[in-house]
Amino acid sequence: MAGIFIICLNGDREHLQFAAMAASVAAVTGIDVQVFLSMNAFPHFIKGHSKEAPASGVVGKKMEEHKVPEFFTIFEQAVELGDAKIWACSMAMDVMAVTEEDLEPIVAGAMGLTKFFSDAEGAQILTF
């Protein structure tokens, strides 16, 4: 399967922001985009969890000051306008003791790493 496969691991604002930007711009340009959420990036996609990721550096802090759209909103646009698919790491779900019903609606469902890598064979993989 061609396209861009994005792995989100870091839960800070800068990483999530750029991952969302890459996902949305690629998706609305007609590129098949698949996003895999794990580690500290994952909890932001659980219902009720804060969508305000902490800044880790000066650019992240400036983004807060300038009220740059939040990463979650940009991921929503990637799904709604570009048909991107966002998947939750099944391991992270187990660790956090959540089910698919606990995930935000923009998350398509649970995904294992093996299946994700299998789908990504021959495609670009970006890790944030």
Partner: peptide, 16 residues
């Protein structure tokens, strides 16, 4: 006043 990729997303959303 909207930051990248906001303007593009607003354009696409409207064009739909």
């Amino acid at each position: 006043g909207s930051f990248c990729p906001g303007p593009l997303m607003e354009l696409i959303s409207n064009m739909k």
